[in-house]
């Protein structure tokens, strides 16, 4: 059976700079993988390519059996993406974001799901406020809501815990667990290893746009795990 996410020999060049250099990854249904590494390792660029925001210079991405090169819209329909920076239209409200997402994704009867997610992420009271007035943590939580809103087959969360309070972290972890339970694949990019361990069973270490290590996420914690991780990224 084909994995939900299959990336082969992904390369992304920005002019003379190679941001992603032959990235390979496969994530099966119900699995979650943490993408870790130093700043500038190529994590966010990889996530953007997988989300269909950025075209790869070469390589192949398949999501739920759909080739991103041949049917980018088909891939976007089954992917939910939380970008690393903001990810929100500054002068639109959360409700308007959900309204737009529902329209573009052709979702019917979405209001109940929207209200449930806003409640769960403690954003119901701010549903009709423009997101420009949101704190960093609120913006992160809203980005996770938007990523998971349509119950995607592949959930891509780029720094979802950054600046988020413990209740928001719990809500995000619940969303990851639910996605896995429904057979979705989850990829979480984060610098917070303890949370990566809670969210994911496996971890992939990126350096210079390449995968330099992969192991069960739990093995990257503790004194020994931390030393191994530091050795991989330096």
């Amino acid at each position: 059976m084909e994995p939900v996410l299959l990336a082969r020999q992904l390369v992304v060049d920005f002019g003379a700079v190679r941001a992603v250099d032959g990235f390979d990854l496969s994530v099966g249904a119900g699995k979650s993988v943490a993408l870790v590494g130093r700043n500038g390792a190529g994590k966010s660029t990889t996530m953007r390519v997988l989300a269909g925001v950025l075209p790869a210079s070469s390589g192949q991405v398949r999501v739920a059996g759909i080739d991103a090169g041949k049917d980018p819209s088909g891939v976007k329909a089954v992917v939910g993406y939380c970008p690393d920076v903001g990810g929100l239209i500054p002068r639109a409200t959360p409700w308007e974001h959900l309204q737009l997402a529902a329209k573009l994704r052709g979702m019917k009867g979405w209001q109940a799901r929207a209200n449930e997610l806003l409640d769960r992420f403690d954003l119901a009271g701010a549903a009709d406020r423009v997101t420009a007035g949101f704190s960093h943590g609120m913006s992160r939580r809203m980005s996770v809501v938007l990523a998971t809103f349509h119950e995607p087959r592949l959930l891509l969360l780029d720094e979802p815990f950054d600046g988020v309070d413990p209740l928001g972290v719990d809500a995000t972890l619940d969303v990851v667990a639910e996605a896995r339970a429904t057979g979705a694949a989850v990829l979480v990019s984060t610098h917070l290893l303890p949370l990566a361990v809670l969210a994911c069973e496996e971890a992939v270490v990126l350096k210079g746009g390449r995968v330099v290590g992969a192991s069960p996420a739990a093995e990257l914690t503790g004194t020994e795990g931390d030393s191994r991780y530091r050795a991989l990224i330096t």
Binding site: R48, A51, G52, V53, S73, G74, K76, A77, V79, Y81, C82, P83, V85, G86, G87, L88, I89, P90, R91, A92, H97, L100, A101, L104, R105, T131, S143, L146
Partner: peptide
């Protein structure tokens, strides 16, 4: 620029 950082999210949605 009207989309701000939301441009990244918007570009990930399935649309023309």
């Amino acid at each position: 620029c009207l989309d701000g950082s939301g441009a990244l999210w918007l570009a990930s949605l399935p649309h023309d």
